[in-house]
């Protein structure tokens, strides 16, 4: 199969190996693909990702493992990356996210983001109930160490919401290698772009500027996540969530859609939420929370 190249966001764990060093680029082999950082000039650097297909990936990864053994192995890795890159199809979710954003606005959902948020909440309830069922857990169990719980993160998060500087202040805040606040912001920006009708990277310019200003305050993984989100390239699971939310036809009555007894949201949306929840310790959950706030934030703006 042809590979993919573009702004893929690699899911953790990021167990990277140097797969190739070019004159102006470095390639890292991750379990989910090759990450290539291209240095364009002194101030410009572009991060590209490559999924070359399983067979090509295995060759590159093997060469990367053997890289330390000698120049020949490294050269083989570089040659394999170049070949895989040439054969790969470009992947960039922004054109599709732009379409979704326009469709969302055209269908009237842009004017009713609260209804979309209600459907997403209903899907979240279903997905979390299913997850609890699978794990035999209790409602809300284990939330204490998250920004939703009653522990120190949760208390600090609640206080931050009431203060000026929210949500930009979330950069680098919270548990996780990608701090929870960064996940929340990635979800927020994705939803704001979707519901605002301006497409990827178009909403919340002031917030985006403030996040850029604070990027140094988070981890490398958090910076990578936020850099993508700022450019309108959120993690793939958020792209899928946006797709499912925009693709779902609104039901005849919003009340019916959110009432679990009456059926609730469609299976596609629930599956997308379930997929999101499977990311990281709480990354996916934090991002969905941010996504919900992104929808509602725009709603408040529109209403005003």
């Amino acid at each position: 199969m042809p590979g993919l190249r573009g702004c893929l966001v690699a899911p953790p764990p990021w167990d990277a190996r140097v797969a190739g060093v070019f004159s102006k680029a470095i390639a890292l082999a991750l379990p989910s693909g090759i990450l290539i950082s291209v240095v364009r000039d002194e101030e410009g650097m572009e991060a590209l990702a490559l999924w070359p297909g399983a067979e090509a990936y295995a060759r590159i990864d093997a060469a990367a493992r053997a890289g330390a053994a000698g120049d020949r192995a490294r050269s083989a890795a570089i040659a394999a990356i170049e070949a895989a890159y040439a054969a790969a199809e470009p992947w960039d979710p922004r054109p599709r996210l732009a379409e979704l954003s326009r469709a969302f606005a055209a269908a009237g959902r842009g004017g009713a983001p609260a209804a979309a948020a209600d459907r997403l909440r209903a899907a979240l309830r279903r997905a979390e109930a299913a997850d609890r069922g699978r794990r035999g857990g209790a409602d809300g169990a284990g939330d204490d160490g998250t920004i939703r719980g009653s522990g120190p993160y949760g208390r600090a998060f609640a206080a931050m919401r009431e203060r000026d500087g929210f949500p930009a202040a979330l950069v680098g805040f919270g548990p996780g290698t990608t701090p929870a606040g960064d996940d929340w912001l990635a979800g927020y920006l994705c939803a704001a772009d979707l519901a605002g009708g301006r497409g990827p990277g178009g909403a919340e310019a002031a917030l985006r500027n403030e996040i850029v200003r604070r990027l140094e305050r988070t981890t490398a993984a958090g910076r990578s996540l936020l850099t993508g989100a700022l450019e309108g390239v959120p993690p793939r699971y958020l792209c899928d969530l946006a797709e499912s939310l925009a693709a779902t036809e609104p039901s005849a009555g919003a009340a019916a859609a959110v009432d679990d007894e009456a059926g609730g949201p469609d299976a596609g949306l629930i599956a997308a939420v379930e997929s999101a929840l499977s990311h990281g310790a709480s990354s996916g959950r934090d991002a969905v929370d941010g996504f919900l706030s992104g929808l509602l934030g725009l709603g408040a703006t529109a209403a005003a």
């Binding site: 204490d144 160490g145 120190p152 979330l170 680098g172 805040f173 919270g174 701090p179 606040g181 305050r217």
Partner: peptide, 22 residues
């Protein structure tokens, strides 16, 4: 973090990356 918070005699435990906000 969960493991140590559940220990008898531990009142609080945070395991985190040392970002300015944390």
């Amino acid at each position: 973090a969960r493991g140590i918070k559940g220990m008898d005699g531990v009142d609080e435990a945070v395991v985190a990356m040392a970002t300015p906000m944390n």
